[in-house]
Design a binder for these strands. Structure first.
Length: 496
RNA sequence: GGUCCUGUGGCCGAGUGGCUAGGCAGAGCUCUGCAAAAGCUCGUACAGCGGUUCGAAUCCGCUCGGGACCUCCA
């Protein structure tokens, strides 16, 4: 049983074999910090966070590099309307690094909320201008780029004559040549398919760096090539990102790196699919994004309520990463309820005492549990089938609850299976899938008060003073605190 | 227009030719002072039409619908 990934480069499911035994280098395209992250952005970062976590679970030492794109030609989200009113003053006042800082901070905050681990290295494009210039110089020296008016373009046709340009994205060179779309700034290119390595900065452009070709800023693909090479080497294991980056971004990266490093940069190319809303991709071009801050707070007309970051994480993991995932309030609310049930069962399991029965009272149940747990690894190895792992977990939920309610004896499972059950659930839920308790931990004082209330409720209940016992429960419920009478006579407390 | 993906029960979603995915919602039952949970049982779904096969949601063809990329985009 070995780990397999669907490799976009070969369009096949392949056994994962790292270039260096025991080590994995992984590069994931990070955000452009010119605006706030939206729900769609959550998907790759959660997907590759799970890849990262799973590789570590398998014992690999992983270097995970995820960049921040803070260079290039961009303007702050929503500034356009303002610009029309006071274009000049806004441009004069806008300090690019201020904008970049603001959105980088927001992005980091969102990643933390979603419980994504920090990458090993998070390089910024502005911090690697020198490396990018060096790479461009090399491409020119090799004869695969040309300079026009202070801008440098990659010669796609020359490259395509010798290398399989378009292999990753399934593009045919002839088609690219036919698609002569009239776009601004194209006239400098020899061919419309050529892409910029360096752009000359017009006088009003604020972000600018000196280069052998004059003041300007790097092209849109070179940063990833430069930073991946610097931190992961000429060849590394995994390159990840959204499917929409397949072309032209990753195709261009391959071309640039192939010229400089004589290698296709990554062995395995992994791409997550899009999050859609009403069947349409959530993205800039459609103006249908829901920002993560809005998702969490509920502050968006499309949202019936706010959704906890863990609900969003769970929602995303319930689908295979290469399928589209359609957003809807119904789907999010279903995920919310499902996660709650799963997590409550997990809490029960954690507290379940381990007995010392070597053999199972119910061998059939024992076997069933063992099989379901064993499949976790199998499913993850099969191109990261998190949805199936979660499905198995849901099949295990009734087992846990039945033991709690006494329908099944704990000793129906052998000691060994029960221990495996506890450890596997804990490792998978918290370490591999990266889920965590939704409810905020309360300070000791509140817990003390609640325990006192529970005690009082128990007392008055035994005296059949239901008016008082119901009052306690109902009033607390209004505050979002839920008291439940358990089968064993205890009262459990949870928060909405 | 080109390239590619996709169409599963009320909703969301797994599905590797044969064996009930799972979640949410819904119905019934059990437990319970009542609640709320929880447990058990229930849906015989695979866009349509053909074909291959002993057997297809799964393979092939056509038709219809949806989408992605070709431009910044996760």
């Amino acid at each position: 049983m070995s780990l397999k990934f669907h490799n976009s480069y070969t369009r096949k499911k392949e056994v994962f074999e790292p270039l260096t035994a025991g080590h994995v280098g992984m590069y994931v395209c990070g955000p452009t910090v010119s605006g706030e992250s939206h729900l769609g952005h959550a998907r790759p970062y959660i997907t590759f966070d799970v890849v990262y976590r799973y590789l570590m679970y398998l014992g690999y030492k992983v270097r995970y590099v995820r960049n921040i794109t803070d260079a290039g030609h961009f303007e702050e989200e929503g500034r356009e309307a303002e610009d029309k009113i006071a274009k000049k003053s806004v441009i004069e006042k806008l300090e690019p690094m201020e904008l970049v800082q603001k959105y980088t901070n927001l992005y980091h905050w969102a990643m933390l909320q979603l419980n994504n681990l920090e990458p090993s290295i998070e390089p910024t494009a502005t911090g690697h201008i020198i490396e990018q210039i060096e790479m461009i110089k090399q491409i020119i020296a090799e004869g695969y780029a040309y300079e026009v008016n202070g801008s440098v373009y990659f010669d796609v046709k020359k490259y395509a004559d010798e290398y399989p340009y378009g292999k990753l994205s399934g593009r045919v060179m002839e088609d690219l040549l036919e698609n002569t779309r009239e776009l601004e700034g194209q006239e400098e290119k020899r061919l419309s398919a050529d892409f910029a390595l360096w752009k000359a900065a017009p006088p009003e452009h604020i972000q600018r760096w000196a280069s052998p070709w004059g003041d300007g800023f790097p092209g849109w693909h070179i940063e990833c090539s430069a930073m991946a090479t610097k931190y992961l080497g000429k060849q590394f294991d995994i390159h990840g990102g959204g499917m929409d980056l397949l072309f032209p971004h990753h195709e261009s990266e391959i071309a640039q790196s192939t010229i400089c490093n004589k290698h296709v940069p990554a062995k395995y190319w992994l791409h997550n699919n899009m999050i859609t809303i009403n069947g349409r991709k959530m993205g800039k071009s459609y103006n249908n994004q829901i920002r993560l801050t809005e998702m969490f707070s509920g502050g968006h007309p499309m949202l019936e309520k706010g959704y906890h970051p863990m609900t969003i994480r769970f929602f995303i993991l319930q689908t295979h990463y290469r399928s589209t995932l359609d957003f809807s309030n119904e789907a999010l609310q279903a995920a919310e309820k499902g996660l709650k049930r799963l997590w409550e069962a997990y809490e029960v399991l954690k507290k379940m005492p381990v007995h010392d029965a070597e053999s199972a009272g119910d061998p059939e149940l024992d076997k069933k549990v063992e099989t379901l747990l064993g499949e976790f690894d199998e499913f993850m190895n099969d191109d990261l089938s998190t949805a199936k792992v979660l499905a198995n977990m849901f099949e295990l939920v009734p087992v846990i609850n039945s033991i709690k309610d006494g329908h099944i004896q704990a000793k129906a499972m052998s000691k060994k299976t029960l221990e495996l059950f506890k450890s596997k659930m804990s490792v998978y839920l918290e370490e591999v899938l990266g889920l965590k308790n939704e409810m905020q931990q309360d300070d000791g004082k509140l817990n003390g008060v609640l325990e006192l209330l529970a005690e009082i409720r128990k007392e008055v209940k035994s005296k059949k003073d239901y008016a008082t016992s119901d009052k306690i429960r109902n009033q607390l419920h209004r505050m979002g605190i839920i008291m439940k009478d358990e089968k064993d006579g205890n009262i459990s407390i949870s928060f909405e």
